[in-house]
Simulated assay, not measured.
Amino acid sequence: MRGMRSMWRAAGCALMLAAATVLGGAVQAQADPVVAQSANVSLAASGLTVQAGGTVTFTVSVTNDTGSATYADGGVYLEASLFQDVSCAAVTGPTPVCIESSGSGSVSYNAWRQVPANSTAVATVTATIKANAVPGTYAVQPSGSFGGYVQDFTPASLNLTVTGTADLAVGLTAASGLGSITYTQTTTNNGPATATGTAVTTTLPGATTSVTALPADCVYDSTAKAVTCTVNSLANGTAATRTFTAHIGALALGSLPATATRTAGAPQDPDPANNTATATCNALTGLIITC
């Protein structure tokens, strides 16, 4: 295990968490599930699937079941390229101190704390994953020591899955006809991940009486006067275009605005500001429309 620990230091980022002492042996219950356990150290995680740009929190509990104060630590080793920020906090007891060191292309956060006799120490480390992290599965090695000896964990290694984000941009154009407006709704995936289950709803002018030429994956709600189109899968760098025609009532007059908005889809969109587009036409009469 000592050789394994050195290997992980060279290969990635070591995030070590100081224990926060819980006096009298009283331990605050961990809200997150325990994912790894050794003789004296337990490791819980807020989740082992996280989106790029998101955070993951590890909770470490160190139990000193001896009759004397003992130095101990616990945490995880992670790849240095994956994280942009790390912070430590106490669950109970004194605030842990993260000591940053670097070498061999890696960055480590080590913090040591003396755990009093017959007590348990609990603290957290929260790491923010880089927004441009490559989606995939990354190895996580639970780590800890007690009284100068490295602990053996079950399991010895965990998998942290990073999911990507997809920046979708919605566009809407309008072309006038005789008593009608033909709309072209465009959804562009600026990546980096593939978008799935995307839905874009175009709310039509209130003077709309019917909609024709609907694509197979679009549905018209006559009560809401809205057309919703779905795209099951949209790869990075591609676009989906849907065109349909709204027929306008004969008494229409003045401004005829329409708005297209992304209403569903995965994964998370890092820039929701471009999820909406508007196209406005003008009715001189119900038949004479300009866009």
Rank of each mutant, 00 (worst) to 15 (best):
V76I: 15
W8E: 03
T173V: 12
D221Q: 08
T55H: 08
V50R: 05
A121V: 08
P33A: 12
A44R: 07
P267Y: 06
L178Q: 12
G12V: 05
S6L: 08
A11Q: 08
I248K: 03
S104Y: 13
T21D: 08
K225H: 10
I288C: 05
A121T: 08
S210A: 15
T173W: 00
F58H: 06
T230Q: 07
T201E: 06
E100Y: 10
L82I: 07
T228G: 05
T208L: 02
G74F: 03
V60R: 01
S61F: 05
G3E: 15
N110Y: 09
Y109C: 10
T198D: 04
V41P: 01
P96V: 15
Q268K: 04
N189M: 03
L253A: 14
T208N: 05
S68V: 11
T259M: 09
T128Y: 10
A199Q: 07
T173H: 08
P135L: 07
T161L: 07
A20E: 00
S61H: 07
P205F: 03
T263H: 03
G147H: 05
T154N: 13
S61V: 09
G265C: 02
L178A: 11
S119D: 15
T70S: 09
G93W: 01
G54V: 06
S143E: 13
T161R: 15
R113G: 00
A111G: 12
A111I: 04
T59G: 10
A224L: 06
R5S: 11
G3Q: 14
A123Q: 08
A156P: 02
T55I: 03
C281P: 02
T194V: 12
